[in-house]
């Protein structure tokens, strides 16, 4: 097991009678990207503020890169943070902004200057270092914020909704940077976001919060596994192959095939009375059907078990928690 670099132990934050964060525990190792998920108001930002020493916990403790929660200055030295909806001094230039923060970590002017050039290039802003932040687009600001979070070469990076309000290209760019931060710098990244498909791509671990409590945490696979409905799937084939695919699947008495309304190229396959028709498991019955389709030479555009996405798991678990 790699080094644990982030660990929250029974972390709790009360605002009066309201529990914004309630007994939250999780951990992350070096180089890991941890997705911190949850609906609005779940306590993601509060958790990040606790772990970044901006707020003091009501109870519980945590450690960051081997420093206990009481050693706030040591923790601050080795973390990088992009706060939620962080503001930028619009009259400063991007370069000036980065140099200032680099110097706050004890770098000399000379070191700060070369570091700012390097970081601007790292986030694709090398052309913009001398421009005022006021003319930066939202995506550029977010990338500048990430560059700022890297000035001290942190061992743990906290990013609170870094992709908020970015277009798809901007989101992809930011996720690309995040992946590189974790891989090339071997930093742990704690990423709070609402972009579930992206979390599925970049995160090795997810923690789903709801009303201040951890609903579930574990690897993406484990979390999805909890919500998986094995006896139902969707199959997409080219439109002119739909009839043949349906016939290929009809050979299996255990499967019901339905056209998904409004989507003529999409079939919903269900295993009837799972486990009863044959000794095979629903997944095996499903695979047999899929094999028959491919054996008939029909190109499969998409085949997916229902609930096989993080967003399905997320919705299922957060709605169950409310119910």
């Amino acid at each position: 097991m790699a080094n644990i670099s982030v660990e929250a132990i029974h972390l709790t934050k009360h605002y009066g009678a309201y529990n914004a964060v309630d007994d939250v525990s999780f951990s992350g190792s070096q180089g890991e990207i941890i997705g911190l998920l949850g609906p609005n108001g779940a306590g993601k930002t509060t958790t990040i503020r606790l772990l970044t020493t901006v707020l003091g916990p009501t109870s519980g403790e945590f450690s960051i890169a081997g420093h206990q929660s009481t050693a706030a200055t040591e923790i601050r030295r080795c973390i990088g943070v992009l706060p939620e909806s962080s503001g930028y001094p619009s009259h400063q230039t991007g370069g000036e902004y980065l140099r200032f923060y680099a110097r706050l970590y004890g770098l000399s002017r000379r070191q700060a200057r070369s570091l700012s050039v390097e970081l601007l290039a790292a986030v694709g802003l090398e052309q913009w270092g001398r421009s005022r932040i006021s003319i930066y687009s939202r995506g550029m600001r977010q990338r500048l914020g990430i560059a700022r979070a890297l000035v001290n070469d942190p061992s743990v990076v906290f990013l609170d909704e870094p992709t908020l309000g970015l277009d798809p290209a901007g989101q992809a760019q930011v996720l690309d940077i995040i992946r590189t931060v974790a891989n090339a710098r071997d930093a742990t990244v704690v990423l709070s976001t609402h972009l579930l498909p992206e979390v599925e791509q970049v995160c090795s671990k997810v923690v789903i919060l709801n009303q201040g409590r951890v609903l579930v945490s574990g690897s993406v696979g484990e979390v999805i596994g909890r919500a998986l409905i094995e006896h139902s799937a969707h199959l997409r084939v080219p439109l002119h192959h739909v009839e043949r695919a349906r016939q290929a699947l009809m050979q299996f008495p255990g499967l019901t095939i339905n056209q998904v309304e409004g989507q003529p190229d999409l079939l919903r396959i269900a295993v009837e009375t799972p486990g009863a028709a044959s000794a095979a498991s629903p997944a095996e019955a499903m695979n047999a059907g899929l094999t028959a389709v491919t054996a008939a030479g029909i190109p499969v555009l998409r085949f997916e078990l229902e609930g096989a996405r993080l967003s399905d798991a997320f919705l299922k678990m957060t709605s169950e928690a409310v119910a």
């Binding site: 970590y105 390097e118 790292a122 890297l150 590189t180 710098r185």
Partner: peptide, 13 residues
């Protein structure tokens, strides 16, 4: 676009 956020030459731990 590929970005290189390689470990820095300066500003290291």
């Amino acid at each position: 676009m590929t970005l290189q956020v390689a470990p820095p030459a300066v500003g290291t731990r």
